[in-house]
Design a protein around this nucleic acid. Structure first.
Lengths: 361, 361
DNA sequence: TTGTAGGCGTTATCAT
DNA sequence: ATGATAACGCCTACAA
C-alpha cells in the first residue's frame, strides 16, 4: 500500500531494506546471483512493500539496455501493416522485449519526428515500414548503430536488413494461376511505385514476364483516387482483350479494394473478368464470388524482423541481410475456369445475360 | 556532419557555441524570448552543426513535461480500434503531443506490462481501451494522478473520464430504421458482455426496448467461434418470425463480419432477412446487396479523448466526465423495404428465384 | 540577459 | 558479498 504520488525510488527501497542502493540495483540488473540469500529477501520485501519499479528513464540515461523495440508504420490503417505489427509484437513478447509503435501516416515530417522520439528513448532496435522517400533521419539512425529492419520496402541510402514478401515468386504464382484458369490477357495495376521498392519489384517482375513473350500483359500505374482514369483504363483493357479472357492483378490490398469497388460499380462481373490481389483481406470471401488472393505470411515476417534485430544486437557488423517469404494462394471465384460460369453459391444467373452485352465469355 | 556514435549533448552544444548549458537549455525549454538575438544564433548554429536534439529521458528524469501521450489498445486488429487510434493521433499532433501505442491483445498480463512501461515513461495522459477485467494497475495509474480516458468501455473501479458511442441512441436508431424498413421481428447478437461496458449498455438498451412491448425482439449472447450454436440460433430465429420479416442487429463490427459469413454460408438472403451492424467496415458496400451500418464518429471520439486529457492536465480534480457521440446511419441493401425487392445496381434477380430454392445454391 | 551548482534515479567503477 | 561515489543529460533555483 503506497498512496504516494511519486513512485518509489531505489534509494527508498535501499533504506527500507537497510542496504545500499548498489545492492538493490544489482538485484534488478540481473546480478541476483551475486547477492546473499538474506540480502535478496530483504530487498524483495522492501521493494514489494513500496511497490518499487525501476525507472527506465534513469536507466536509459545511464546507457543500459532498454529492452525496448520501436516500430514505425507508414499507414496504420492498412490491415496488412497491422497484421505485421501483430507478428512483431508477438515475437517481441517471446523475446522479453517491449514494443512501442508509432504511425507516420505516410508523412515525411511525421516520420522524422517519430523517429526522433523513438530513438531518444534508446530503443534497441527499430522495425520500419518507411514512407519511402529519402530519409536522412533513418539513415542517421542506422549508422548511429541502432539495429534496423526495413519492412516491405528498401531504401537505397539506408544500410539495413530487409524483410518482406518474395515479390518475384508472388508475381510468378499469380501469373501461373491466372493462366491456369484460362485468362489470356493480364493487367497489372499498382499505385505509383515511387520509392516503394516492393511496388517497384512487383511491377518490374510483371513487366519482365511480359517481355518474355510468354505473356500478353499490360500495366497500369495509377493514383487510386483518380476514379475517372481508372474507369477508362478498365474499359480500354477489357475491350483490348479480343477473345482472350481478361484478368486483373492487383499489386496490394488497397488496389484490390479500389478495383473491386469500381468493377462492381461498372457492372463488370468478377470471374468473367478475372480479379486477383496480393494481400489477403477479411472480406475476400464475402464479396461474391469471392476474390482470389495471395496472402503474405505476416506472422513469419514479423518474427523474422525481430530475429534480425536480435542478431544485430549481439553479432556486430555483418552485411545487410534480406529475408523474403513466399505467399499463400487462396483461389476463389474471381478467377474461375472459363468453361461454364461455375455455380458459386449464388446461381448468379447473370453470365448469360451479361455475356450478351459484353464480349464473349 | 556528425559521424559520432553518440548523439550530441547539451554540454557539447554549449561548448561549441561558447555559452553555458543553461542558455542552451532555455532555448529548448520555451524560454527563447529571454535570450539575446546573438545568443540564439550561436545556439542554433552549434545545435544544427552537431545535430543536437534534447534527450527526453534526461528531461523526464527531472519531472518536467514529457509531451508524451500513451494509448493502450485491447485489440489492434480491430479496425474500429485502429480508426480511433488514428483520431487520437491526429488530435495529439495538433496539440503538439507525441503518441505511443501499445497493444494488450486482450490479455490482462500484457495490459499490466504495457501499462507499467507507458507509465514509466512519464506519459502525461493515457487513452485506454481496456480489456475490461478488473485492473488494479489501471486503477493505480489513475489515482497516481495520470490523466486517464477510457474508450468505449468503463471500469467500475477506475475513476476516469469516458468517451465513446451513445449506445442508447445507437440502439434506438437501429431499431427505428429496422422497423421503418418493415422488419417486425428483431434479433440482437452480441459477444459476451462480461466487463465490456459498451456491449452491456447496448444489450441492456435493446432488452429494455423489448420490454416496452413495442418490440418483438430477442437477444443472443454468443462466442463468435461457436459456429454451431450460432447456426442453430439463426435457424430458430428465422423460423420464429412467423409472418413478420426478421432482422438481425449486430452489436459490433466483429459480430457483423461473423454473421455475414454465416448467412452467406447458410444461404440466407441479405435483405430478405435484415442485417444491420454497429461499426462501419470497409467492405460493407461490397458484399451484395450492401450492409446497413451505424458508423461511429471515430475522429471525433479520438479528438474528444485527447481533449479530456489536456483538460485534466491543467484543471486538476473534477468529477469524471463522460462524452458520448451519436452514430451515423448508412442504409444499404441488407435492410430493404418489403414491397418489391429493390433493384440495387445489380439486377440480383434474387428474391424470386432464390426464395424458391432457398437453402440450396 | 547570462552563468553556477545541485539534483532527478540509475548504473558502473572502484574500493572494502 | 557489499558499499561509497561519480557519472548520465537535463532542468531549475539562485546568483551575478
Amino acid at each position: 500500500m503506497n498512496d504516494r504520488r511519486r513512485p518509489a525510488t531505489i534509494l527508498e527501497v535501499a533504506r527500507q531494506a537497510g542496504v545500499s542502493k548498489t545492492s538493490v540495483s544489482r538485484y534488478y540488473s540481473g546480478e541476483r546471483e551475486r547477492l546473499s540469500g538474506a540480502m535478496r529477501e530483504r530487498i524483495v520485501a522492501a521493494a514489494t512493500a513500496l511497490g518499487y519499479q525501476p525507472n527506465p528513464m534513469a536507466r536509459g540515461l545511464k546507457g543500459g539496455p532498454s529492452g525496448l523495440v520501436g516500430m514505425l508504420v507508414a499507414d496504420i490503417r492498412n490491415p496488412f501493416s497491422v497484421a505485421i505489427m501483430h507478428g512483431v509484437e508477438q515475437a517481441c513478447r517471446q523475446a522479453g522485449l517491449s514494443l512501442m509503435v508509432c504511425n507516420s501516416d505516410n508523412d515525411l515530417e511525421q516520420e522524422r519526428q517519430q523517429l526522433a522520439l523513438l530513438s531518444s528513448y534508446r530503443i534497441e532496435g527499430l522495425v520500419v515500414n518507411a514512407t519511402g522517400r529519402h530519409s536522412d533521419a533513418l539513415a542517421q539512425l542506422a549508422d548511429s548503430g541502432t539495429p534496423l529492419v526495413l519492412l516491405d520496402r528498401s531504401l537505397a541510402d539506408v544500410h539495413a536488413d530487409e524483410v518482406g514478401l518474395d515479390n518475384d515468386a508472388a508475381i510468378d504464382m499469380a501469373i501461373a494461376h491466372l493462366r491456369e484458369q484460362g485468362y489470356g490477357r493480364l493487367l497489372f495495376i499498382t499505385e505509383p511505385p515511387a520509392q516503394a521498392s516492393s511496388r517497384q519489384a512487383r511491377l518490374e517482375r510483371f513487366n519482365q514476364r511480359c517481355r518474355d513473350g510468354s505473356l500478353s500483359g499490360d500495366t497500369l500505374v495509377i493514383e487510386l483516387g483518380d476514379r475517372q482514369r481508372l474507369d477508362q483504363a478498365l474499359a480500354r483493357f477489357v475491350d483490348s482483350a479480343g477473345d482472350s479472357r481478361p484478368a486483373i492483378l492487383c499489386a496490394n490490398g488497397q488496389v484490390t479494394l479500389a478495383l473491386t469497388r469500381r468493377m462492381k460499380a461498372l457492372g463488370y462481373l468478377l470471374g468473367e473478368i478475372g480479379l486477383m490481389g496480393i494481400d489477403e483481406l477479411e472480406w475476400c470471401d464475402l464479396t461474391e464470388p469471392g476474390i482470389t488472393t495471395l496472402a503474405q505470411p505476416t506472422g513469419a515476417i514479423g518474427q523474422a524482423a525481430v530475429d534480425c534485430l536480435r542478431a544485430r544486437a549481439v553479432g556486430p557488423r555483418q552485411a545487410p541481410q534480406r529475408a523474403t517469404f513466399a505467399p499463400t494462394l487462396t483461389a476463389r471465384g474471381s478467377t474461375q475456369p472459363a468453361a461454364t460460369p461455375s455455380a458459386t453459391a449464388e446461381p448468379s444467373s447473370v453470365s448469360s445475360s451479361s455475356s450478351t452485352s459484353e464480349t464473349s465469355s
